[in-house]
Amino acid sequence: MLHEIIQWLRTPGLHHFLIISGILFSVGVFAILTRRNAIMVLMGIELVLNAANINFLAFSRYTSGTLDGQVVAIFVIILAAAEAAIALAIVLNIYQNFSTVNIDEIDRLKD
């Protein structure tokens, strides 16, 4: 049993990458759920997107054998960049209007 575990640990493969991305995804969801600061929530979203990208690349490498997963990963990175820019602009605007970025204190759409 112990020998099998050591043998498994010594051969990094698809499962290892998937488990790392699963843990990274859960950590990101934890940040999204618990933080009050909007920028911390954004950081959690970035962690989740990175976990998804690891999955795409792992399946591209070990399962499909084609580069489609890598192309999809590029699109994920592009969308993450666009999302971060828009979200930061919204956060700055909210800060101008409310003087806070704590998402549980922002409960009005209009003055």
Partner: peptide, 17 residues
């Protein structure tokens, strides 16, 4: 993109808010 762009953007957001 992440280290050079998004992270710098997030740091700007942190510093400005």
């Amino acid at each position: 993109i992440y280290v050079g762009g998004i992270l710098v953007l997030l740091l700007f957001g942190v510093m400005l808010t």
